[in-house]
Design a protein around this nucleic acid. Structure first.
Lengths: 114, 114
DNA sequence: TGCTTATATAAGCACATAGTTATATAATGA
DNA sequence: TCATTATATAACTATGTGCTTATATAAGCA
């Protein structure tokens, strides 16, 4: 087999986390590129605390990691997660969210630091 | 791609359903062979209504189908589900539950009709 | 230092979920 | 027909979840 056999509790916990449409979409977006909280707030048209709380759950489960750059905290997928391969397989079934990222660019709301 | 791109709502709903340890294990068991309710009650050491309610959710989502044989109603995976390929990929990450089925046989609690 | 911006956290509420107990339905066989 | 067995459904309850509002933290800048 090409992957590690998962632990039942870990797998079901991952599925429960990604059984939420917002979190599932976040993972799909982060697969493309890292995003900061305010970008996700714009994309989901929801409140900042709501996005922060979703990200916290993903981070607590080790599925994403954070990286502060000045004012902003960028989130990205954690490739070292024991669930990484499962997640990659899952999000292949999620329709592309590239249009959301392009929309950000168009509106000039893309945050980039270097 | 070898699969149909899923609908976001459908995919997240499937993940939510299988984010429950009992339902995830049921799908893993049914992958091996069809099971009737009383077998699942024995395996999960839980109440009959609890198992029935889990099966109902899986059936409502079209993930399993039922087949009455006399007293017993056997449940099996529904290969015609739009989510079937996703589910197969998921379940590959769930540890084998074969021991549970073997245990049933040993205890003489396996139901077989033909 | 104080102001502003980005993000996190806490508390409260509304709703969903999973289990329980009790009861209903359905099939079988005496 | 009645009794038994398997399963489903309904009502209730306890717990979990996601959102909101309010507040705290942390970084950058005047």
């Amino acid at each position: 087999m090409s992957f590690e056999m998962g632990d039942l509790d870990e797998v079901s916990q991952t599925l429960k986390l990604l059984g939420d449409k917002t979190r599932l979409t976040i993972m799909k977006l982060l697969e493309k590129r890292e995003c900061c909280v305010c970008e996700l707030v714009e994309i989901f048209k929801t409140s900042q605390p709501s996005v922060s709380q979703h990200l916290r759950k993903l981070k607590d489960a080790g599925l994403v990691k954070e990286n502060r750059k000045g004012h902003w905290i960028f989130y990205s997928v954690n490739p070292d997660s024991s669930q990484h391969e499962l997640i990659q397989k899952l999000i292949a079934f999620v329709p592309s969210q590239d249009h959301e990222l392009e929309e950000l660019d168009k509106k000039g709301l893309r945050i980039s630091c270097n």
